[in-house]
Each structure stands twice: as C-alpha cells, then as structure tokens.
C-alpha cells in the first residue's frame, strides 16, 4: 500500500518534470539548428560575393535558391523529414520549411496524377503562408500609404 502510494507520488513527480525538460531541450535544439541555417545563409552570400563578384542583392537571391534546392532535394531523398522531426522549428521557420512543405505535399499526392495530384496540391501546406503574406502585406501597405500621404 505504502509502496503503491510512493510509486504514485514518484509518477506524479516524473510527470511534472518530464515535459519541461523536453521543452527546454526542443527550444535549445531549435535555436542551434536555426542559428546554423542562418549562418549558412550569410556564409553563402559572402561566398557567392567573392566567387562570382556579384552584388550582395544578387548574391542573396542565389543563397535563397540554393537553400530551397537543398531542402527540396533532401526531402525527395527522404531524410529531411527525420531532420525536421528532430529540429522542429529550427528547420520549419527558415525558408527550408517552405520548400519542404511544398515538396512533401507534391510527393504525397503524386499518385493522383500530374494535374489534380501535383498541380493542385503543391501549395496545400505552403499556400497559407502566401495567402496571409499577401493579405497582410497589402493591408499594412495601404496603412503605410495612408500615413505617408501618397495614396494616389
């Protein structure tokens, strides 16, 4: 009886402490992986600047395309899902997450054919980002123009 109670108490304590530990671990992993992705981004910009003598603006476009390509390729090869499960927001918040969501949706619906499968489902997950991005950008843009006083 006493042992049972002690066990129950113990279980309660374990239950209490378990989630916070994984939470802080998740947060740390997301910070480190996300930071490394940002580091790679800035590193690629500087590399392309030196390599091809292009301006920083052009170089950043190349960098974005490189990251998108790598994320799409790794998703297609199958091991990016495991990385995302491990790093969570560390890989979902950078542009790699956008590419990953498009690629995995397109792969998943491939069997339904090129039009109703790949074509209409590619933006199944990434579409919300574009919709809310455009709506909010337009709304804030109008506000900015109203404040700035150059509406027409």
């Amino acid at each position: 009886m006493v042992i049972k109670m002690i066990n129950k108490k113990y279980d309660n304590i374990v239950e209490k402490h378990k989630p916070t530990e994984t939470r802080s671990k998740n947060a740390l992993v997301a910070f480190l992986i996300g930071g490394v992705v940002g580091l790679i981004g800035e590193g690629l910009i500087q590399l392309y600047c030196c390599l091809w003598h292009v301006s920083r603006t052009v170089s950043s476009v190349y960098m974005i395309i490189t990251l998108i390509f790598l994320a799409a390729l790794f998703t297609a090869l199958g091991f990016f899902d495991k990385w995302v499960n491990f790093a969570r927001c560390g890989l979902l918040i950078p542009i790699t997450g956008f590419s990953h969501s498009m690629m995995s949706a397109a792969l998943e619906y491939k069997k339904e054919g090129p039009i109703y499968g790949i074509g209409s489902n590619a933006f199944k997950l990434a579409g919300s980002v574009i919709v809310y991005g455009v709506v909010s950008a337009w709304t804030f843009g109008v506000i900015r123009l109203l404040i700035g006083g150059s509406l027409l």
């Binding site: 974005i64 395309i65 199958g78 899902d81 590419s99 498009m102 792969l107 491939k110 590619a122």
Partner: peptide
C-alpha cells in the same frame, strides 16, 4: 518571385524524378 518560382520548379521536377517514401 525568385524564391517562389524556384520552389515550384524544383519541387515539380524532383517530384517527377523521385518516388514518395514511407
């Protein structure tokens, strides 16, 4: 435009080449 176009193009051609896993 560059980012969205690149994402569409890469995911389309890679989907044609690769098979879905799991």
């Amino acid at each position: 435009a560059s980012g969205i176009s690149a994402a569409i193009i890469f995911s389309f051609f890679l989907t044609l080449i690769f098979k879905p896993r799991n």
